[in-house]
Design a protein around this nucleic acid. Structure first.
Length: 573
DNA sequence: GCCGTTTTCGGCCCGACTGTTTTCAGTCG
């Protein structure tokens, strides 16, 4: 683990233990630790080399945190953390993971019943020792017993590829209910995070009851965690928690804003609301003095009333977007309709794809594209690869479709495989016959970082290569991306005028957000690509678009946003 | 613990649901 990552981990633990020490999560000290942890996570400053006074200049980091950072880099440990670890052993901290069991109750269980671990808690429940405690009762005891069962089955965050389809289905089903004027999934899913902990649904309706009724009784519900008049939580039989909230249609924008978050973004917005003499909650932005509702119906209204640009959901992480929006300095983000082409698409010639050349081209035409690159695999990719003869055949098929699609430039491309040493399929002379080459890694994921860096740079030096496909070759939730020197690779890409792909596959979303943001700073160009393996999947490019938003990628840097002439100039350049 | 031209103290985001109460504390997001 890099020392930076470890430092963030230590601060996370510090925050968790401090929450116990403070006896509650909402003390301002705990908040400060949360903020500091977040600051460490998102900053790019070279912390290791910085003095205490320099560190305190960073937002969210004061004297105390700065000293702990220095202490960590100088001695490898943080004294305060050691103290807290001694005070709260790991077995006891484990208990905080039981849903519904917060610090207050936890500390009372320890002080009054000597509960030190999960077994103690089970024994206390079995002996009915919980219910006599003040503020507790038979119901709380039972609830606790049930919650303990869930600690084992409770899944970590789910990959977006698993959660998004379920969320879309739920939205469709709820939208069809009578009285529903609008419905949308919110939360981290709408922010397009790679993994999500639960699905949040926000509904606009004047009659919440039938929606609650439907929601709690859906066939896929395995457990109802809570059911109120306007808010319910369930667990589905695949173990994903879904929260649903119903508001009046006039309040829909405020509710959507509130539940899309992130928490830190919301806090930042509320702070700004207070500066303007107003308060912001899930029902609206309300002027404090007059109690007049300033905005509530749409998110756009609220951002406007707060005196800032609309902030796209993927940006709402409190990574500087609020300040940027107030200064009218957000990047111009690309919309799916803005894209003029797709530069990474497979046909059934690639063993792992399903649609014919004609079907893929027709689908691209329906997307309204001005250009399309068909990029079946090179021959080095065993099983799914395509040899020279077959590629010549593909070229003919594409050429034959030219007259029918005269308003679309059809390119015969190839997705080359980057070998262990950075070698590519075919000879450079043969590669030059392709209109466009994407080069991607499909194997040898565990090489040393230096070797991976060299490998990518070598591949990009081939003059035919114009796009670096799914840069880290990760699979979200399954496989970490390769380790490499990101800056060196991005610099080399810039030098070679190679675009960094923004791969739209929900299991890929590669290059990752941190790489995209770094690439923006370095000055790279990008290609948002579907990597579709079926004609129906060209539309998944919309996911890549949302991922590009998360990376703050300005549309001016996206080669397939460019008009045909400019795109061709880049392609031939 | 952090922050700041209403600065070095006194603020710091806001509400639903549950289970226990009979006006509220704890938890969660």
């Amino acid at each position: 683990m890099s020392s930076r990552k470890e430092l963030v981990e230590l601060f996370r633990e510090l925050t968790e233990l401090l929450t116990l020490d403070e006896g509650g999560p909402s003390t301002f000290r705990v908040r400060a630790y949360e903020n500091a942890t977040e600051a460490l996570k998102s900053t790019r400053e070279p912390l290791e080399e910085m003095t205490v006074s320099k560190l305190t200049k960073l937002e969210g980091i004061g004297k105390s945190t700065a000293q702990k950072i220095r202490e960590y880099y100088d001695t490898g440990r943080i004294e305060r953390l050691e103290e807290l670890r001694a005070k709260f052993p790991a077995d006891f901290v484990m208990l905080a993971r039981v849903p519904g069991l917060g610090p207050k109750t936890l500390l009372r269980l320890r002080d009054e019943l000597q509960v030190a671990n999960l077994d103690d808690l089970r024994a206390a429940i079995a002996a009915q020792k919980i219910r006599p405690l003040k503020g507790m009762g038979a119901k709380s005891e039972k609830k606790l017993a049930k919650a303990i069962e869930r600690i084992g089955s409770k899944q970590d965050r789910r990959p977006i590829a698993e959660a998004l389809p379920l969320a879309e289905t739920l939205v469709e089903e709820v939208a069809a209910l009578p009285g529903v004027e609008a419905v949308q999934y919110a939360g981290s899913l709408r922010r397009f995070r790679e993994t999500i902990a639960d699905i949040d649904l926000v509904v606009a309706s004047r009659d919440a009851e039938p929606i609650m009724e439907f929601f709690a009784n859906m066939g896929r519900v395995s457990e109802v965690l809570g059911r109120g008049g306007t808010k319910s939580s369930v667990v589905t039989n695949t173990g994903i928690q879904v929260d649903l909230r119903v508001v009046e249609p006039e309040q829909y924008g405020a509710a959507l804003l509130y539940f899309t978050g992130s928490k830190a973004h919301n806090i930042r917005l509320r702070g700004r609301a207070l500066d303007l003499g107003a308060t912001l909650n899930e029902y609206g932005l309300v002027e404090l003095e007059t109690e007049k509702v300033l905005a509530s119906k749409t998110e756009e209204d609220i951002y406007k009333a707060l005196g800032m640009q609309f902030i796209a959901p993927p940006l709402r992480e409190d990574h500087g977007e609020v300040a940027a929006a107030a200064e009218n300095a957000l990047p111009n983000l690309v919309a799916t309709e803005d894209l003029r082409g797709d530069l990474h698409v497979h046909t059934s010639y690639s063993g792992d794809a399903k649609s014919s050349v004609a079907e893929v081209v027709e689908a691209a035409s329906k997307c309204g594209y001005q250009y399309l690159a068909i990029t079946d695999h090179g021959k080095d990719l065993h099983i799914n690869g395509v040899d020279e003869v077959t590629h010549a055949q593909i070229a003919e098929e594409i050429a034959a479709l030219g007259p029918k699609y005269s308003d679309m430039l059809l390119l015969h491309g190839c997705e080359l495989n980057i070998g262990k040493e950075g070698e590519l399929d075919y000879s450079e002379e043969q590669r030059a016959k392709f209109d466009l080459c994407v080069a991607s890694i499909h194997s040898h994921f565990d090489l040393a970082p230096e070797a991976q860096t060299e490998r990518l740079i070598t591949a990009m030096k081939a003059p035919s290569v114009r796009i670096l496909g799914h840069m880290l070759a990760r699979s979200i939730g399954k496989r970490e991306g390769i380790e490499c020197g990101v800056d060196a690779v991005l610099e080399a890409a810039k030098e070679a005028n190679v675009a960094i792909e923004i791969n739209s596959g929900l299991t890929r979303l590669d290059a990752p957000v941190e790489v995209l943001r770094r690439a923006c700073e370095i000055g790279n160009v990008f290609a948002v690509s579907s990597d579709a393996h079926h004609a129906d999947h060209l539309s998944s490019i919309r996911f890549g678009v949302r991922h590009s938003h998360r990376g703050w990628v300005p549309r001016e840097r996206i080669v397939n946003y460019w008009p045909l002439a400019k795109f061709k100039q880049w392609l031939d350049g």
